[in-house]
Simulated scan of single mutants.
Amino acid sequence: MTDANAGLDGLIVQPFSRRGFVMTSLMSGLTLATTRVEAQVIHTDAEGIEAGEVAIPAADGPMPAYRAVPKGEGPFPVVLVVEEIFGVHDYIKDICRRLAKAGYCAVAPELYARQGDLSTMTDVKQIIAEVISKTPDAQWIADLDATVAWATSSAKGDPKRLAVMGWCRGGRAAWLYDAHRADLKAAVAWYGPLGGDRTAIQPRTAGDVAAEIHAPLLALYGGADTGIPVASVEAARDAARAAGKEVDLVVYKDAPHGFHADYRPSYRKEAAEDGWAKALAFLKAHGV
């Protein structure tokens, strides 16, 4: 195993082949896979920052992504923003702008660009079956590594101050990427599943790698999340702590899954705002 693959034990399936990009640019607007768009949708302007779609060099061509960064020379601390299952739509783009306003170089790569065009999909079951379940963990991990390389060489990012933050499926990714990347300074997982099916291309769950994380991790979860038992998050936290790792768990008792997603009925303003404040404080407390 090469140095570039360090930390991917149990994830790489050899031979690892790529496929061409289905999505060559990001979607416009919000995901079509939502029952209705809520009135409380947050829109963050681009005043004082640079924000927009970019193309990140990947092994098989340019990967579409969204980047937001403060104006100025930098370098700025880097936050990898990992999407939900719905793609890099307006909600994820806005998160990048919020982070840029807080002083970060925030980059959200479209990690499912090879598996399907999420901009056209309206059915969650279809997204999971045709896109999410067919995306190898080794693929998106390599794509996040490519994003780090690009951000720190071409986008005013500081390679010494690196963090990852993900929502839903991206929360799972935050755990796994923390176990992969030894130079990560902090990770934030917003209601990422700890369990799930193990497959040839997704052989380990977030719970499986909890004891292997490198950077301190902040876990933000909803007590009313019917798909992620709080006990599973507590077990992951305890496994990490038993291995000498740092995991801070915050459970919002009455919050459902997706409580930060301001475009969905699941949004809970108080929990979302408190979690955001805790996330920013956590990054700063750990050198990001």
Rank of each mutant, 00 (worst) to 15 (best):
Pro193Ser: 09
Lys185Arg: 15
Val81Leu: 11
Gln202Pro: 06
Ile132Thr: 15
Ala59Thr: 14
Cys96Gly: 06
Val209Trp: 04
Lys245Ser: 10
Asp178His: 07
Gln115Leu: 14
Ala187Pro: 01
Ala174Ile: 13
Gly20Ile: 04
Pro75Ala: 15
Ser28Thr: 12
Ile56Thr: 06
Thr120Trp: 03
Leu162His: 08
Asp117Trp: 13
His43Glu: 15
Gly72Thr: 03
Val81Arg: 03
Gly275His: 13
Ala243His: 07
Ala100His: 13
Pro256Trp: 05
Arg198Cys: 14
Lys284Gln: 15
Asp248Ser: 09
Lys101Asn: 10
Ser119Asp: 07
Ala4Leu: 12
Val54Arg: 02
Glu47Ser: 14
Thr31Arg: 09
Phe259His: 06
Leu144Met: 15
Ala149Gln: 13
Arg97Ser: 05
Ala206Gln: 06
Tyr252Ser: 04
Cys105Ile: 00
Gly258Lys: 01
Glu50Arg: 05
Gly166Pro: 00
Trp190Ala: 05
Val54Asp: 01
Arg237Ala: 13
Leu220Gly: 02
Ala108Gly: 12
Val188His: 12
Leu220Phe: 05
Thr31Val: 11
Ala173Lys: 04
Ala59Trp: 12
Ala65Gln: 06
Gly87Val: 06
Leu184Phe: 13
Ala174Glu: 00
Ala189Asn: 13
Ile85Ser: 04
Lys156Ile: 03
Glu53Phe: 04
Gly166Val: 10
Gly275Ala: 15
Asp90Arg: 08
Val79Asn: 11
Ala33Gln: 05
Tyr91Leu: 13
Pro70Asn: 04
Phe86Cys: 00
His260Tyr: 13
Gly275Pro: 09
Asp137Pro: 05
Ile92Leu: 09
Pro75Arg: 08
Phe21Ser: 03
Val164His: 03
Asp137Trp: 02
Ala155Arg: 04
Arg268Thr: 01
Glu47Phe: 00
Ala271Pro: 01
Val288Asp: 03
Leu8Cys: 11
Pro265Val: 12
Val230Met: 08
Ala100Glu: 00
Ala279Lys: 02
Val13Lys: 12
Gly52Cys: 04
Arg36Val: 12
Leu118Glu: 07
Arg161Trp: 03
His286Gly: 07
Pro265Cys: 14
Ala239Ser: 13
Leu144Trp: 01
Pro136Cys: 11
Glu270Gln: 15
Glu234Met: 07
Gly10Met: 10
Val54Gln: 06
Ala65Ser: 14
Pro62Asp: 07
Glu234Cys: 03
Ala129Phe: 00
Ser28Phe: 03
Asp183Lys: 09
Val124His: 09
Ile12Asp: 01
Asp183Cys: 07
Thr34Asp: 00
Ile92Met: 08
Asp158Lys: 14
Tyr177Thr: 07
Ala46Trp: 04
Ala39Glu: 13
Glu83Asn: 07
Lys185Asn: 15
Arg67Lys: 12
